[in-house]
Design a binder for these strands. Structure first.
Lengths: 197, 197
DNA sequence: AATATAGCTGGACGGTGTACAATTAGCAAG
DNA sequence: CTTGCTAATTGTACACCGTCCAGCTATATT
């Protein structure tokens, strides 16, 4: 509990170590417990020490969000069926989000992470959309719809939904079907719309 | 700035007054400024006084969320075209959400408000879904998809999206089109799926 | 070897939500 | 008309939060 170091002595912290510990703490104790003080304690360090490696808690979380997005498996932009590529990408995103349940509300509260990984995924999505003849503003619209839907659905999956009293047991596999169904609806809608215009 | 009342003297607070002031404060100063102390000051009352009418800040916000949902204009359950009824309901919800921008992130972070108004809307939606031959678990799935999509889209509308660098000006009318397009995709998907099964 | 830099600690500041005890206004009952 | 109970309100305070500032010193730079 007490301090082992006197001022001036180093603890060998790294920015990566801080991010990693934050991710662990989040996974173990949940979002509410992710506090700068708790994080510092886990690293056996004074709370202020963190600010040598992270400019603010907000920035820390932003980095966390983008770091998670690195796990998303994106299909090659030249995949045979572009529409299928979009499907795979969103499905993988959904999957990744479910393995980091506590972060999901943050994606929403903040806004979908402008980090480099997010940009990478965005670019791939736009490329795929272009291959199904969706360009310009229509493309960014479709992009938005897909992202919204995926993150939103993850939010409703991870945290208990409202349920207007129908059937009780929320089976994960069912929920996955639920997600993929809606996703397909959106994708057919997007591609059909481009066929008309 | 100072206290006009001595302990024991009443201020005539009501639960409704507290909720109302909270809503005003939110609209005027934004989410960050909605603090128990600020709320108390606006009502010329000590911060603790609020706890005679509200059990916690969380509960207060929950009530706020549900109160806003009362503004949603729901179509009569026996509207001619049930699918159109769903469309109108979600469109109205989207509209209401946009007039309370600061609450939107809260709907997501928390989870869609289990209050009485939310239940009322849920029931109506299920009734409409039944009329387009969607029942049981499929119905609650569809319900979830529609809610997720609407709230999620509102979130991306109110708070600046990420934008992978295409076109700049985010015209509200365009965004509305964006929303209604996706909504139609979902609705056709939902109804078509029921036609198959 | 001298000096700058950057990591760390101690301590503090201003903010938050909220519990506790003491006061007293308003109302019901005698 | 008095008495007493309940519930609204205040003052005070606690524990916690994110973060700034000043000092110390191990390390990198010159």
């Amino acid at each position: 509990m007490e301090s082992f170091r006197t001022p001036g002595q180093r603890a060998g912290l790294t920015r990566a170590a801080v991010l990693g510990a934050a991710q662990d703490l989040l996974a173990e104790k949940g979002l509410e417990s992710l506090t700068m003080r708790a994080l510092a304690q886990r690293l056996s360090v004074a709370p202020n020490a963190l600010y040598s490696h992270v400019t603010s808690k907000t920035a820390l979380i932003d980095d966390l969000l983008d770091e998670v997005l690195a796990e998303v498996q994106a299909p090659a932009p030249d995949i045979a069926d572009a529409s299928d590529g979009l499907y795979q990408l969103m499905a993988s995103t959904y999957d990744v989000l479910l393995t980091h349940r506590d972060l999901v509300p943050l994606y929403l509260a903040r806004q979908g992470a402008r980090g480099s990984n997010a940009q990478r995924l965005g670019t791939i999505m736009l490329a795929l959309l272009a291959r199904v003849n969706v360009h310009g503003s229509a493309a960014s619209e479709a992009l938005r719809v897909l992202i919204v839907y995926t993150i939103g659905f993850a939010a409703f999956t991870t945290h208990p939904p409202l349920d207007a009293g129908v059937d009780r047991p929320v089976i994960p596999a069912e929920t996955l079907n639920n997600f993929t169904n809606g996703l397909r609806w959106l994708l057919t809608g997007i591609t059909q719309a481009s066929a008309v215009s």
